[in-house]
Nucleic acid binder design. Structure first.
Length: 929
DNA sequence: GCTTAGGGTTAG
């Protein structure tokens, strides 16, 4: 006898069995087990630290991406000459420029290096259409055909003198921090200032010349995204030569037609991990000479901006701290020995408290008042050097201190000997000269020899011990408001704490940011609880930014926390939580460190070595905002039905996280198993979790034939028995009705002596037929590998393990109809449930992933599996659906996108843990209408 | 125009 050996689905099983079953649907697999997800409803309920990336973290990004074609320059005054709408520039061969519009509407750009043709040129022209295409229409510049002529050598570098010029509206600006290896470069541009231009170099490769330049995102946007704002751009060939001749440091560029490559110097220069490569005819560069630019945009810190004036001698006098007297208004220099980040006073201002000393060995406490945070000195650590202008010396409690007076300003410098002397300031205009440089160097050198100066207190997470107070330099990954006086910050610094870290989970919707970049690695993420006055600062922090948190307290948990309690914290005794207590004692506070801060070097090294350990894609994950996925214009063929709002992530991101988790992904269906639908239909025992194939008809027919031999008389007290002629001469088919027929169970008929084919024919239009055989004078069911119940076209199976059938004794007290469940119960049969089980091979731009379609498969197709089993029409419908999701023969790029809700979970089999994924809460479009 | 703070651990 051919019997189905089931696959078992229980709490200790594995995925492989199910997949085996998919691959070899008619072969029977025994005693393997599959784990259904332990966490059926909420991935974060397991107590693990789970994160659901929140859209809010990228709000700024989206806002930016939607605003295409921002004016290149803010000056769009009426003096800007423009072409009339629809007009076209043409230039005569004989000399003077002619235009279909008035001369007042002549474009004032146009250059083709090495000779620049600018507004008012007397160069002679003739029509040509093969030159750098520029067209002005409605006041905007387009890349399109234009008839300018007499090009000598036409290169795609344009010097723009019209400050109202705009880029074509279909071009989209990409902020440099958002560039990644996977960036789509067509119809995009970057807008950046030339920080550094290296000398033109000759090259032996495909190009004769090569030139490197460092450009920086042009800071004219509110909420400039965090990340690397400076990037290397490499120009090749004639372009490099022209760039060398045309462009100067300080110029503003608009670059289009570039490609993005990996920067080989990222470790050395600490700039963007990618570089821009510019070669060939697709490249277009608009150059806005520094002289034509207005004042620098003011929305972003100008900490690295070059001073406006630089002279050898200072026009300011600085007083040594030992020479200060009460009542003086002075300019001073000092080395910071204590400081508090600006905090709100009871008055109108923020106050920074600092204590400084200098080579005269005097000490001075300073109170800096300003209602603008940017006017406060940007002090990152003890040892920094400050220059304070116009402070008033006063006596308080017998000691001198100083406070700000009108005209106060501050510069801050890193205190490390030998490091670049770059003043930190928000002021666009400040005086800085060689005297200042010498003063900073002198104070640095002096401070280095001062043992009395307090040590710097920033340490990595790996050095943190329980109960310590310390300063942490870190990157903010995500944050969540806990209540009005507490905010949670999830941070990391790339090092692993020796003590286990407390894990704090919060409602997914409240979390802003993403932990995806950590790849789900344990003990990397510190949970910082920020209290009281620091909540205001925390509210302004953007995930991805770099922070220094001062006087952070490592607090070991005293006892095991109750599951789900205590604000979602999990972890046993000794797990470290980090508290930034209220108040400003010991300089407690938070400071955002700029991307290019020297103070971030160690952190970046740690994060870099982590990244090297992880796949390259992790970098791309971090650099690529999820909005790039949103940009996919196609509609999805599936619809999410879940009630949670999750940031959509890539499949690579899904694979990097630790289960259990829930994700939203958008992917294409590369293939699916099994290929034949009937093989996807399984029988599942809800009791023992066994999963088995639906027996094929031949096997069932064989069971029925075997049962014929046992036919004989039995002594069941049937209420009624009728007989039918069978297809075999002499064989009768008995139809028994039990005594309960008198009570209403009349549609339950026991059929003895029928073949499977006869049984199938008999069941047409019948409510409930149960095939039986006689054994030792008693009536019993057939082997449970055959259906135990026929209802019209539907056939029901029982679990051979869990059913307890002896003889059929149907002396029930039933009244009315019995459904299949009740019939099974009365017969002692544990019914099996029809289920779908498929493996979908998904792919997106980041990679591929196998996901099971199982528990939610019926709702995915909106077809009950038991109905599909009996309905050719429904099976055809499912097959057509699968053909739509994964058109046979088509290439992957042509396949539709599918929005999917995925859940990850772990299964354990033979001591091996495997991560599995299932599709949930997803419905094929139109299936549910 | 004046005031604010005036260092020195929360107690979650």
């Amino acid at each position: 006898m051919k019997a189905s050996m089931p696959i078992f689905l229980s709490s200790c099983g594995g995925l492989t069995a199910a997949l085996c079953c998919l691959r070899t649907p008619t072969r029977l697999i025994g005693h393997n087990r599959i784990v259904p997800p332990r966490c059926e409803t909420a991935a974060h309920s397991s107590g693990q630290n789970t994160l659901f990336p929140c859209r809010a973290a990228f709000r700024g990004v989206r806002a930016h991406r939607s605003s295409t074609a921002a004016p290149l320059c803010s000056d769009t005054s009426a003096k800007t000459a423009r072409l009339q709408k629809g007009s076209r520039t043409s230039l005569s061969a004989g000399g003077g420029r002619t235009s279909s519009g008035a001369s007042a509407h002549t474009p004032v750009i146009i250059t083709s290096a090495p000779v620049t043709y600018a507004h008012g040129t007397t160069e002679s022209w003739r029509p040509s259409s093969d030159i750098f295409p520029v067209k002005s229409r409605g006041g905007e510049w387009y890349l399109g055909a234009v008839s300018l002529s007499r090009p000598r050598r036409i290169m795609p570098i344009c010097v723009v003198t019209d400050t109202g010029t705009q880029v074509p509206t279909h071009f989209q600006r990409v902020p440099i921090p958002h560039l990644s290896l996977s960036s789509a470069c067509s119809d995009t541009f970057v807008k950046a200032k030339v920080l550094q231009k290296f000398p033109l170099a000759s090259s032996e490769g495909d190009y004769d010349y090569i030139l490197k330049t460092v450009i920086q995102e042009y800071e004219d946007q509110q909420n400039l995204p965090s990340g690397h704002t400076s990037i290397n751009a490499i120009l090749f060939g004639p372009l490099a030569k022209d760039f060398s001749q045309t462009v100067a440091e300080g110029d503003l560029l608009v670059l289009a037609g570039f490609t993005v490559g990996r920067s080989p110097t990222v470790k050395k220069d600490g700039l963007h991990p990618c570089n821009l490569e510019l070669a060939g005819g697709d490249v277009h560069i608009y150059v806005y000479p520094a002289s034509t630019l207005g004042p620098s945009p003011s929305t972003v810190s100008t900490r690295t901006r070059a001073p406006v004036t630089e002279a050898a001698k200072s026009k300011y006098a600085y007083v040594a701290l030992k020479d200060l007297k009460a009542g003086m208004v002075v300019n001073i220099y000092g080395v910071v020995t204590f400081f508090k980040q600006p905090f709100r006073t009871k008055g109108t201002d923020y106050c920074s408290t600092l204590k400084i000393t200098d080579h005269s060995d005097a000490k001075l406490c300073c109170s800096i008042f300003s209602e603008k945070l940017e006017n406060h000195p940007q002090i990152y650590e003890i040892g920094d050097i400050v220059r304070l202008h116009r402070v008033k010396i006063q006596l308080f409690n017998g000691t001198l201190n100083c406070i700000t007076t009108l005209g106060f300003s501050a510069l801050t410098f890193d205190g490390t000997v030998g490091s670049p002397i770059v003043p930190r300031t928000s002021s666009s205009s400040f005086h800085f000269c060689d005297d200042d440089r010498r003063m900073v160097e002198r104070l640095r050198a002096w401070a280095t020899g001062q043992l009395a100066l307090p040590p710097r207190s920033a340490i990595p997470l790996s050095s943190v011990r329980p109960r310590m107070y310390f300063d942490l330099t870190c990157q903010l990954l995500a944050k969540a408001v806990i209540d009005t006086c507490c905010t949670l910050l999830k941070v990391w610094d790339g090092t692993i704490c020796a003590d286990p870290l407390l894990s704090v989970s919060v409602e997914p919707v409240t979390l802003e940011g993403s932990l995806a970049v950590t790849g789900g690695r344990h003990n990397l993420v510190a949970n910082v609880l920020v209290y009281d006055n620091h909540v205001e600062v925390a509210r302004r922090l953007k995930p991805g930014s770099y922070l220094r948190i001062y006087n952070l307290h490592a607090v070991p948990q005293s006892a095991e926390m109750p599951p789900g309690g205590g604000g979602g914290g999990t972890g046993g005794a000794g797990h470290l939580a980090f508290h930034l207590h209220g108040g400003t004692a010991y300089g407690r506070g938070i400071r955002v460190l700029p991307e290019d801060s020297l103070d971030l070097q160690e952190l970046k090294r740690s994060l870099e070595s982590l990244e090297n350990d992880m796949s390259d894609s992790s970098l791309i994950e971090w650099c690529t905002p999820p909005e790039s996925l949103d940009a996919v214009p196609e509609d999805s063929l599936t619809v999410l039905k879940c009630d949670h709002t999750l940031e959509r992530v890539t499949l690579a991101c899904v694979k990097k996280t630790t289960p259990p988790r829930v994700f939203h992904v958008r992917a294409r269906l590369r293939s699916y198993q099994p290929e034949r639908l009937y093989q996807a239909l399984k029988l599942h025992c809800p009791k023992c979790k066994a999963l088995q194939d639906v027996p094929d008809e031949e096997a069932i027919a064989s069971l029925f034939r075997e049962a014929l031999s046992g036919t004989g008389c039995c002594s069941e007290p049937w209420a009624f028995t009728g007989y039918l002629d069978s297809s075999d001469p002499g064989r009768k088919i008995s139809l028994h009705m039990c005594r309960s027929v008198e009570k209403g169970a009349k549609e339950l008929v026991f059929v003895e002596g029928a073949t499977f084919e006869e049984m199938s024919r008999l069941s047409v239009g019948q409510k409930s037929l149960v095939p039986v055989r006689s054994s030792d004078g008693r009536m019993t069911l057939l082997d449970l590998s055959a259906p135990f119940l026929f209802q019209g076209p539907k056939q029901y199976y029982g679990c051979t393990r869990c059913s307890q059938v002896n003889c059929v004794e149907l002396d029930t007290q039933e009244k009315g109809e019995m459904d299949e469940r009740r019939i099974a119960e009365v017969l002692g049969v544990q019914p099996l449930r029809y289920v779908f089980l498929m493996k979908l091979d998904l792919q997106d731009n980041s990679g591929c992933l196998d996901a099971l379609l199982w528990n939610d498969a019926e709702s995915f197709f909106c077809v009950p599996a038991s109905d599909a089993e009996a309905s050719q029409e429904l099976q055809d419908w499912i097959q057509q659906t699968l053909d739509k999701l994964c058109p046979p023969g088509g290439c992957l790029e042509e396949r539709p996108w599918l929005d999917l809700c995925l859940r990850s979970y772990t299964v354990e089999e033979s001591g091996q843990r495997t991560v599995c994924y299932q599709i949930f809460s997803t419905v094929v479009s139109g299936a549910d209408v």
